[in-house]
Write a protein that binds this DNA or RNA. Structure first.
Lengths: 167, 167
DNA sequence: CGCCATTCTAGGGTATACGCGATATGATAG
DNA sequence: CTATCATATCGCGTATACCCTAGAATGGCG
């Protein structure tokens, strides 16, 4: 991966990488991808999910699935809409996720007697056990994700991301 | 979306939301999803992509596709591997994206004469035109994404996210 | 009852990441 | 030169997450 490129072929010839040089409007020349907030958010989230998958004992459990499980644990007998709100997951997306968790027997879905439109979610015993056992790993994953940050920067990160998430 | 729920059915009855109360180890009780770095990263990235899709004139152009286009613009005649590195996109994923962009006539893919294993990417005239026309929107999107942050916080955000992205 | 909002189902399209095997080519050791 | 190894891409498949739209079922209300 970190071999020296040795690529002098196909002349990368990027005059645009340096300075505008010509009379080009500098408007479009200083749009540097690696400084864009969207690019950085994607990379940071990418790295986190990679850390999650590497550190989690259960190969099949994803970051998002775990979020759903903990939410259902904290709010049992909630309909899909509520879980979607609490996890900030789209309805359609949540549906797929719930199907997978149900298939694995981690989740129960029962119809509500009061409002028959709703399906209420709750953890199965196995689901409960899994969540309990994975939480220490989740803490470790948080630690690994934040490894490059000082205590002060961690607070700043949380604060800034909270504001970046706010609609 | 922000209608009052009016839901008193399906008794949310969450005794676990309050305090442990029983002799449970408090280890697992204070795992609050909304404070987890992974959750915040997901939400922030989610909000950004939503802003991107809403603010971009071209319905079919995604945040990631635009990243690829600008990268190719800044480094014309680069092979797929290099573009993948620069955009931090997986090879196989990039391949699909390039196919879509090529199908839309925004990209050219030609074989390298020096190293015939490589396929070099470059923008078509339409691709160039599109990138030029969209960059102002991209700046606006960045502004919208950062709307909740002060100038100082924006610098902190960039710095923190850079560190969170670093392997 | 009829209209409307809510909840969920169903299907399509895109993005992301991984994998494994095949192919072509380049580079290098023997 | 040849055998071997590395690189770049392709082809195909799997799984997940994410969002949109349309429609069915249900509940609430005038």
């Amino acid at each position: 991966m970190n071999r020296k490129p040795g690529r002098r072929s196909s002349r990368p010839d990027s005059p645009s990488a340096g300075a505008p040089a010509n009379g080009a409007p500098e408007e479009n020349s200083d749009y540097v991808l690696s400084e864009q907030i969207g690019y950085l958010l994607r990379r940071a989230y990418q790295r986190h999910t990679a850390i999650f998958q590497a550190a989690i004992p259960d190969d099949k459990l994803t970051s998002v699935q775990f979020a759903v499980l903990t939410t259902v644990r904290d709010h049992p007998n909630s309909p899909l809409v509520l879980v979607a709100q609490r996890t900030a997951i789209d309805h359609a997306t949540l549906r797929d996720i719930v199907l997978r968790l149900k298939r694995r027997g981690l989740l129960h879905v029962v119809a509500d007697h009061q409002d028959r439109r709703q399906r209420l979610l709750s953890l199965s015993p196995e689901g409960t056990r899994l969540v309990e056992s994975v939480i220490p790993d989740a803490r470790r994953i948080t630690e690994l994700t934040l490894a490059n940050l000082s205590a002060c920067e961690r607070l700043a990160a949380i604060e800034v991301l909270r504001k970046l998430s706010r609609d």
